[in-house]
């Protein structure tokens, strides 16, 4: 039986959290990592897509743009902090 999107979302979230501040992941990076983790028979791109959507819709992760689009845990970024201070 294929792994549930919620389980994949949890695994993605754990990965993003572990590397937060050190490495940014794109949706494709997370998808590849999950297929490797759960195996092709259990996890495919469709499940990963649903998992990413669940992460975004729940607010656990957000998209960021730094020369490309990445998936990160919500945080106040430097530019916003600077603007708030001023």
């Amino acid at each position: 039986m294929a792994v549930a999107p919620e389980e994949v979302a949890d695994a993605m979230y754990a990965m993003v959290k572990e590397y937060q501040g050190r490495k940014k992941f794109k949706a494709g990076d997370l998808t590849k990592a999950m297929i490797e983790k759960f195996g092709e028979a259990e996890c495919d791109k469709k499940v990963c897509k649903a998992a990413i959507r669940a992460l975004m819709d729940s607010g656990r992760c957000v998209y960021t743009y730094f020369g490309g689009s990445f998936i990160e845990i919500p945080h106040v970024e430097g530019a916003a902090e600077d603007a708030a201070k001023d």
Binding site: R53, M56, Y63, P74, A79, K85, D86
Partner: peptide
């Protein structure tokens, strides 16, 4: 201008381009 960042609307990753001023003061 500082470009990019986290801004967006819930669930979407596109459609908003973050821009902040270096001269906010």
């Amino acid at each position: 201008w500082k470009h990019g960042g986290i801004v967006g609307v819930m669930g979407y990753g596109g459609g908003v381009i973050g821009r902040y001023s270096f001269l906010a003061e």
